[in-house]
Each structure stands twice: as C-alpha cells, then as structure tokens.
Design a protein around this nucleic acid. Structure first.
Lengths: 157, 157
DNA sequence: TTTATAGTTGACCAAAACAGTGGGTTATTG
DNA sequence: CAATAACCCACTGTTTTGGTCAACTATAAA
C-alpha cells in the first residue's frame, strides 16, 4: 500500500467521474480540464483502472469513461491499489524469507499495519466522498466555470 | 503522509531500539546486522530521527542510540513523518490554491484522508508493537542468532 | 595518551518511480 | 468521410529511494 500523488490523482479522477458521469460518459479531456491533470497521464491511469474493472470505456464521439458499478461499491483502497499495482505490500512478496531465509521483524508488523490501513481505506466509497459538503461545493464551482467558458466559447463565434 | 519502504525501515529500526535498548545504547552497526539494513542508510535515517527528537545519541565506544523517551510515548506516525519530512500532505502546501488560484477537488478530500490515517498511526506506539507476540518471537530468534555468532567468534580466538 | 569505537557530515551514485510528452492506431458517431 | 475519443507505445526529465565512500569529531578504555 503506497500513498502518493499518483493515488491522489486517481482518486480525484474517479471522484470526478462519480460527480459528473451520472447521465453520460465523461471524456478524459473533460477531467483533465476540470482537475488540471495531464491528459496523457490520465490515459495511463485509466488504462490501469480499466484493467482493474473499476471503469468501462465508450469509444468514439460522445464517448468516455463510466464507473463500472455504483459509487457505493467502489472504494478508495481499490483505486489506489489499481494504479500502484503493488500486490506486494511486505517487501518480500509474501514468501516471508525477507532476511537470510527467515522472516524479518517488519514482516508481521508491516503486514498488520498495511492490513489496517487497507481496511480503513476500504471503508470509504466514492459515494461517501460525493456526499461530503466540501466536495459538492468545489464540484459546483468547477462546473460553473465550465459553463462560463462554454458560454464564452459560444459568444466568440 | 507517505508510506514507503523508507518509513518501514525507520519503524523497524526504532522497534529494534525499543526491543534491544532497554539497558544500554544500541549501535547502528548492531541494528544493521539484525535488521539487514545498510549502515549508511541507517545513518541518514537516524540523523532525521534525531533532528525530530525521537532518539538521543551517545558517541564513542559503547555508544549508540537510545529512544528519547518511553516507548509508549513514541508513535508510528511520528517516525514516518520524521523520515519523510513532508509536512505538506495536500500537494499545495496548505495554501489551498492548488488549481489556478482555487481549491481543488482533492484538497479537502485528501486533507481529510491524510488526517484520518495520521490519527490511526498516531494511535500505535512502539510499546504496542513490542507487546505483540509475533514481534517478540522474531526478536528472540534474532538475538539467539546473535549470541550464536558471538559464541562462534569466541571459539575462533 | 594513544587507540579503537561510533556518531556526524557531505559528496556522490544507480535504479526506480513519478509525471508528463508526443505520435500514432482504432472504433464510433454524425 | 471527418471528427471524436479511447487505446497504445516509446521516450524523457525530475525526484525519491536506497546505498557507497571518505573524512571528521567526541569519547571511553587500555
């Protein structure tokens, strides 16, 4: 279990999907614009999210990504695990021969710690996040700006 | 809050200190031997641990490191924070202007997440870990091997 | 007082991970 | 057919990780 900006990006993007993808698929370009994440980097992240069955894709115009299931069935831990792709949380790959053929001090300790953090993050779903007041207000502002620039684009024609 | 092998190393080393440093200071060479962590890398980690007042040092022969206070007053979160040295968990340094001068979706979310993980790890002390059965048995085996090689060294004279 | 011990500091290094770029291709819609 | 947007892949620059080496200082013991 690693916690870096990579996982943060992935969770943000998935939360964006949960917020804006209720009726239609959401393109990575949209997410890139709203969340200020590079499009190509998003592509890499979503390739992993798709391989881990967290999202489904729709190609062609009007296409994009959808959550593969309801937001209350997708948990933060799953998202982070998907993009980090490290099944190996112990450093010795579960074989427990980390140190000269024997188990190290850290082995049990970190397994335990890792398990508990994992359990903690497994208890937070996308729906839980969507329901938070702060998230809603930020999302509202992002969409307001989006409409504003859409209007701007129209008046420019 | 970052969780990597670096923090794992630090926690392991501190746990070694808690287990073996009850009567006398413990040298980094000892920890290096028992926990199979490079001596020079330990030096770097302990410089940070010392700057963060988690350990005190004793120079000269018979010297080494001690916990700066009782094991039940040192928590895993403090150790990890000390070696990672990132007060900045949000990516925007608390200024909350992560995205074009405004707060991003992740800001509140990740602050919250970070806080909760932090609280969780702040609840686990070195003493808690020392009391664990698995830790005790591994430590006992490590010390047995240590005595064995000490005996071996004696017979070699 | 010398000597061995052990912390302290700093420069340096290779490999990996992170974050991003660019250039294609394939499928789908209009 | 053209536009869209997913998909794929090779490549790049930066940071972090984990580690090495060398020189230096404080101190306890012989």
């Amino acid at each position: 279990m690693r916690l870096t900006t990579k996982g943060r990006y992935a969770v943000t993007a998935m939360l964006d999907l949960a917020l804006n993808g209720t009726d239609r698929p959401v393109s990575l370009a949209d997410i890139s614009g709203r969340q200020d994440i590079s499009l190509s980097y998003l592509e890499q992240l979503f390739a992993k999210l798709r391989r881990n069955d967290l999202v489904t894709s729709v190609r062609g115009p009007g296409g994009g990504y959808r959550l593969s299931r309801a937001g209350d069935e997708i948990f933060v831990a799953q998202i982070i695990d998907a993009v980090n792709e490290t099944l190996d949380a112990t450093g010795c790959g579960g074989t427990a021969d980390c140190q000269q053929g024997e188990v190290c001090l850290t082995h049990h300790l970190w397994c335990d710690l890792s398990d508990q953090i994992h359990n903690f993050l497994s208890g937070i779903s996308l729906s839980d996040l969507v329901e938070k007041r702060e998230v809603q207000s930020v999302s509202a502002r992002q969409n307001a700006r989006r409409h504003q620039s859409a209007t701007l684009a129209l008046t420019e024609i």
